[in-house]
Every structure is written in C-alpha cells, then in structure tokens.
Amino acid sequence: MQKRTVILMIGIDPAENTKYGVRVSLQLARPQSFRSAGTDSPDTEGKRAVVVSQEGEDAADAIRKIQLSTDRRLFFGHTRAIVIHQQLAKRGVMDMINPLLQSRTTSRETWLFVSQTPARDVLEYTPALDAIPSTYLSNFFENRLLLKHSYEATLGGFHQRLTTPGIQPVAVWIGAADKNLSAPRIHGFAMFRGDRFAGALDQEQSLGWMFVTNQFPKSILAFDCPHHQGGRFTVDVTSVKSRMRVRYEPGRPPQANITVRLRGWIQGGICVQHADRAELSELTRQVKTQVEELVNTSLKQCEAADTDIFGMGRDVYRFSNEDWLGDDAWNHAFARMNTNVKVDVRLQFLQSYTRIQLG
C-alpha cells in the first residue's frame, strides 16, 4: 500500500481571517479500496472525493498545514485542475502556481481556471455526468470541445505564454455552476497582463479570439437571420484558418492585417427556406458580417485592457526584432493598433448533394 493522498484539484481563495493571506482547498481522492464496509461517515458516504481547506500566508504555507493534518503524503501527480479566485488573480498568480511549475510530479497539462465564485465551491460540485469534477473537466478539454489546441488553457501553456515576448497568457474564465449539469459554467477566457488578471472575454468575444488564433474546433454556431427579427440559423463550421501580418515602427500605431477563412455547412433555421443560390449568397454575407464583428469586438476588448493575447507582438519580436522595445512598450502600442479584418466565408447547404458555387 502506497501511503499517498492523491490531489485531484486545487482551489485558491482569498483568506477569510487575514487581509493578504490565502485559503487553499484540495480535492482529495478517497482510497475506497482500503476501506471496509460501514466505515464511511454520514458526510462522506458515497463520495469519491472530499475537499479540505487551510489558510496560510501563501499557497505553499497553506498546503504545508494540510500536509500536517493528514496521515498520508500529498501527491500532485494526478492533479487535473487549478482554480484561482478572480480577486486573487488580480494580484498576480505566479507566487501561487510557481511551486507546482517547479514540481517534478505536477503535470504541465493541468488546467488553469479563474473563477468569479469561490474556488472551493467549484471543487465541491458533483457533475451529473461524472462523480469526480476533475475527471469531468479533463474530459471536456481533452475532447477539444472548447479549444482546438487545449494546451493554451493549461499550467504549462500559461507559463509558456508568460515567458514568450509579445504574447500574454490566458486562462479559462468560469462562474457559478450550471444547474442542469451541476458543473462549472464556462463564461469565456480570462486575460492577463503579465501574471495579473486584466479582464475577460465573454463567450461571443472569445469566438473572435479563437477565430484569429486558429483555436476554434469543429463545432456548430448560430447566426442571426438577415431579415427575420430574432430568427437564427445554424452553421456546422468544419474549419477556420486565419493569417495575421503585423507592421510596427516605434512611435507610430501598429498595423495589422488579419484574414479569416471559414468553411462549413448551413444546417437549418427559420431563414433557411429555399436552399437556392440567392439564399446561399445572402446567408454567406450574413456570416461574413457577423464574424468580422466578433473579431473586431474581441480586438477592442483586448486593446482596452492593454493586453495582447493574440500574439501580434510575438510576430514583431520574431520578424522585426530591431523594433522590439519590450512587452510593456508593446502593450501600450497594441492599445493603438489599426486593424484590417478580412473574412472569407464559403458555405454549402447540408442537404445538397452537389456543391453550389458562388459567382
């Protein structure tokens, strides 16, 4: 028998009893195979994981206190997610995640979340589709339901972006539980300036960022009908590919040209009636217009926060290194970015056996 306590998730909240301390909560797997029948307490009966918390001056201090209160050595090799309260993330997260980054056992593919609600609450959710919240979240990202390249939302992805000139880190932005699934509700993506939380993109704004950074997975999206007020039609997006070119001279606003190519099938909706050439052309124009709006809205949100999560500065650093003056200078320049967005949309009707070509 290995005397280990397996940590599945970590939650970090502001301390309740001190102004600057933190409260660390650990979701621990219960070693059911080592228990005999009838030994469960009423509070833990039937649960596969329990949550324990301690306050400390920092995360390492709180974890040490938890270690001293259990008879097994804490093991972080199976930790699947870290949840940090939004209020704490504004102070900076490196002091909290650095011990895990330096650990030999903690996986760099551990998911990183910023939560509007207390992190301990997230650890205590019991999703309807899985008895262990960490497994539910792991499956969600490993199946690429949210991001095409899920590493961007992990501990390792955060650190990689943080240490790469010209690109700022992101994390998944979550809130209170979805009542139907009893699982964290994903609101969008948290933006960072350095290691400090600087703002967030909601779900629609996140789509613009995902389009530009080639992060959008194959999925179905709904768009507004051109002429039916309140009506929507759905598109099965099969691929999104983008290209970005940035020009920058110190002292002048940067220029960026972004091209987004979207391909997909029109599935249906109230405004899909004739499935003819004219209708296809009209719906294609509508998708093009809305994708442009999504990208521009996302860019404006990032510019307002002075944080380049698109990686435009990375292109300047790589291809015009003589003009690179550092991340701080670039973030201020990024806020004055002049951007030209071009969207190329090619759609087909799902029920058509022959491809309809646009002239």
Rank of each mutant, 00 (worst) to 15 (best):
Q2I: 14
Q2R: 08
K3S: 11
K3V: 13
K3F: 15
K3E: 12
R4V: 13
R4S: 11
R4E: 11
R4I: 15
R4C: 04
T5Q: 09
T5R: 09
V6Y: 05
I7C: 02
I7S: 01
L8Y: 00
L8E: 06
L8R: 05
L8S: 10
M9T: 01
M9K: 00
M9G: 02
M9A: 00
M9H: 00
I10G: 03
G11Y: 06
G11Q: 02
G11R: 01
I12T: 00
I12V: 06
P14V: 04
P14R: 05
P14H: 01
P14K: 04
A15G: 10
A15I: 11
A15W: 15
A15L: 14
N17D: 14
N17G: 01
K19T: 05
K19R: 09
Y20L: 08
Y20C: 04
Y20M: 07
G21A: 05
G21F: 02
V22Y: 00
R23F: 03
R23G: 02
R23L: 09
V24F: 11
S25R: 03
S25D: 08
S25P: 07
S25N: 07
L26H: 09
L26C: 05
L26W: 04
Q27E: 15
Q27M: 15
L28G: 08
A29Q: 14
R30D: 13
R30V: 15
P31K: 03
Q32S: 10
S33D: 05
F34H: 13
F34V: 12
R35W: 03
S36R: 11
A37E: 14
A37V: 15
A37S: 07
G38C: 06
G38A: 04
T39E: 14
T39W: 13
T39G: 12
D40H: 03
S41Q: 10
S41K: 10
S41N: 07
S41F: 05
P42G: 10
P42Y: 12
D43T: 08
D43K: 11
D43A: 09
T44C: 03
T44Q: 05
E45G: 10
E45R: 12
E45Q: 06
G46D: 01
K47T: 05
K47H: 09
K47N: 04
R48C: 04
R48G: 05
R48P: 01
R48L: 07
R48I: 07
A49T: 08
A49E: 11
